[in-house]
């Protein structure tokens, strides 16, 4: 099975660490560049909306965060499944690193949505299916993090958390389809695979730039956390100690703000 060799290497802690060290500085700068471009475009260059005026500019934060809140959970669930089936430890570490980041994106999506809802809908919050299921997502992230902190024994910890993560995955389609299945106050998706986006190109470009920037930012933070976790676990391993004595580890820990 020669084609699997690069993959097998990548999932070993050592190669994952070295791979991350190599791409993190680049990733940091590219992320920053894309985020700044998206922000500038969204705030200064994108036109005013015909119904919502300037308040719609909140979507450049809100929509990418909401997407990321679900994307991060799907990555976490994918890692958990691989970890449960093949017992690849790096997957457990990556899922661990993802949880707080996903929770943050969920929090941002909820808070910014609320700040958009107050002037536009006339309320900060309603208990409709979309908002409620997104709030449940936040609780799921908290549950996953709390469960991990509660179990000390590493083997049981990884398995229990992976199971809980996989149970929670039912919520993702509920969030996505809530606006189609039920009457909600929240509007349906503006960008779907089935039809042309119902958002004008001049607003779509900065939105997609922000979404790309958030995805890269997520990867950046998750890789760095995973590196930290690898050091924590492999602290006495020969390869790590050798690298330390050769002084080849990036001590600054990458680029960015």
């Amino acid at each position: 099975m020669r084609i699997w060799l690069p993959l097998q290497r990548l999932v070993s802690a050592r190669y994952f660490f070295e791979f991350s060290s190599r791409i993190l500085p680049w990733l940091g700068w590219v992320t920053l560049l894309i985020l700044l471009t998206g922000l500038g475009w969204g705030l200064f260059y994108a036109p005013t909306d015909y119904q919502q005026g300037e308040s719609y500019r909140i979507i450049f934060i809100h929509v990418p965060s909401a997407w990321m809140s679900m994307f991060a959970y799907m990555v976490m669930a994918g890692c958990s499944a691989i970890f449960l089936i093949w017992r690849i430890r790096i997957m457990d570490l990556f899922a661990t690193s993802t949880a707080p980041i996903g929770a943050s994106f969920t929090l941002i999506a909820l808070a910014t949505g609320s700040l958009w809802g107050r002037p536009m809908w006339g309320t900060y919050w309603v208990w409709d299916a979309r908002l409620t299921s997104e709030l449940i997502l936040l609780f799921l992230y908290f549950g996953v993090m709390a469960l991990r902190a509660a179990i000390d024994e590493p083997r049981r910890q990884g398995r229990a958390v992976a199971l809980l993560t996989l149970l929670g995955v039912v919520n993702i389609p509920v969030i996505h389809f809530s606006v189609e299945w039920w009457n909600t106050l929240h509007q349906p998706a503006s960008i779907t695979k089935a039809a042309a986006p119902s958002i004008h190109l001049s607003m779509l470009i900065p939105l997609l730039l922000m979404a790309l920037g958030f995805t890269l930012l997520y990867l950046y933070m998750a890789l760095q956390r995973t590196q930290g976790a690898i050091i924590e676990q492999e602290i006495d391993s020969t390869w790590l100690q050798e690298r330390l004595s050769n002084n080849t580890i990036e001590t600054e820990g990458g680029t960015g703000k």
């Binding site: 909306d49 015909y50 119904q51 809908w121 509007q187």
Partner: peptide, 14 residues
């Protein structure tokens, strides 16, 4: 409460 549709566009296009 006002319900928004999923359309976003500049006034001229609207």
């Amino acid at each position: 409460l006002a319900k928004h549709d999923e359309n976003y566009m500049p006034p001229e296009v609207a």
